[in-house]
Simulated scan of single mutants.
Amino acid sequence: MSEGASEGLLTIDELAAAVGLTVRTTRYYATLGLLPPPVRQGRIAYYGPLHRAHLELVRALQDHGFTLQAVERYVASLPADATVEDLALQRVMHTSWSPLPHEELDHRGLEERAGRTLSDRDVAVLEKVGTVERQGSGYVALPNLAVGVELLDLDVPEDSLGAAGDAIRRHMEALADDLTEILREGILAPYRREPHSPEDAERLERTVSRLRQLTLEAVVTGFQRAANAVITRSLAR
């Protein structure tokens, strides 16, 4: 392969650096079949945009809480002719709304994250209010863990905290379903119907990322307005 032919291709060291992984992890993912075979020039393996798109999708799925085994099954289900743009679209749909990846913690690790000692009852309350989830033999601390920790010190019955957590989860899941359907039908479906370039895929990803931020802000503002409306109605009775 000439220098011109290999332009734009990366060595495995460069590929790993581009997606923020170690070379060892990148090689391991390749052995699991999470990457297409590399382009070889003699003994050197080169990787292109499609390999990077696969790795970025794998990272997005793991940040969303997928186990490596689940990631393997998902990647195996992708069409063999999936393009960089197709993978970018998959990544858009599966990128976690949480700014931090899920991390499994043992009890001590959960206490360190919470910044205090936690009894079994405390952990049960944190689970009830939706700030901690059990995962395997450990726990996953959700982004709102600090809120749950503060609730532990309030003089509020545990059953009431659990009921409030259930109500929030129930309505938020319904809202998330509605908003996801709007995203699919209003933005992603038209995108799929038209020819698109890698640049178009990048713009779509930036658009959806910003849309997530604005949606979260709108949800908070919408709840505040709804709560104020409830107070107004109760005062008018």
Results as ranks from 00 to 15, higher is better:
residue 2 S to C: 11
residue 6 S to H: 15
residue 7 E to D: 13
residue 13 D to P: 09
residue 14 E to N: 07
residue 17 A to K: 13
residue 18 A to M: 08
residue 26 T to G: 08
residue 26 T to K: 12
residue 31 T to D: 12
residue 34 L to R: 08
residue 35 L to S: 02
residue 38 P to M: 15
residue 38 P to S: 12
residue 38 P to Q: 15
residue 39 V to M: 10
residue 40 R to V: 13
residue 46 Y to A: 09
residue 49 P to K: 09
residue 49 P to Q: 13
residue 51 H to Q: 10
residue 51 H to Y: 04
residue 56 E to M: 10
residue 57 L to V: 06
residue 59 R to A: 12
residue 61 L to W: 00
residue 61 L to V: 01
residue 65 G to A: 00
residue 66 F to L: 10
residue 67 T to W: 01
residue 67 T to H: 03
residue 67 T to F: 04
residue 70 A to W: 01
residue 71 V to T: 06
residue 71 V to H: 08
residue 83 T to W: 02
residue 86 D to C: 07
residue 88 A to W: 04
residue 88 A to F: 04
residue 89 L to I: 01
residue 93 M to V: 07
residue 95 T to C: 04
residue 97 W to L: 11
residue 99 P to E: 10
residue 100 L to N: 15
residue 101 P to Y: 00
residue 101 P to K: 00
residue 101 P to A: 01
residue 102 H to F: 04
residue 104 E to R: 14
residue 104 E to D: 15
residue 106 D to L: 02
residue 106 D to R: 04
residue 106 D to H: 07
residue 107 H to Q: 13
residue 112 E to R: 06
residue 114 A to Q: 01
residue 114 A to L: 06
residue 119 S to F: 03
residue 121 R to E: 04
residue 124 A to T: 03
residue 129 V to E: 11
residue 131 T to N: 09
residue 131 T to M: 09
residue 132 V to I: 11
residue 134 R to H: 00
residue 134 R to C: 00
residue 136 G to S: 10
residue 138 G to N: 14
residue 146 A to F: 14
residue 148 G to W: 07
residue 149 V to S: 08
residue 151 L to A: 10
residue 157 P to G: 14
residue 160 S to F: 07
residue 167 A to F: 10
residue 171 H to Y: 05
residue 177 D to L: 12
residue 178 D to Q: 14
residue 180 T to M: 08
residue 184 R to V: 10
residue 187 I to E: 07
residue 189 A to M: 12
residue 189 A to Y: 13
residue 191 Y to N: 10
residue 194 E to R: 02
residue 194 E to T: 12
residue 201 A to F: 00
residue 208 V to D: 05
residue 209 S to R: 13
residue 210 R to A: 14
residue 212 R to H: 08
residue 215 T to Y: 04
residue 216 L to D: 03
residue 216 L to H: 04
residue 217 E to M: 15
residue 224 Q to M: 13
residue 227 A to E: 02
residue 230 V to R: 08
residue 231 I to P: 00
residue 235 L to S: 11
residue 235 L to T: 12
residue 237 R to C: 13
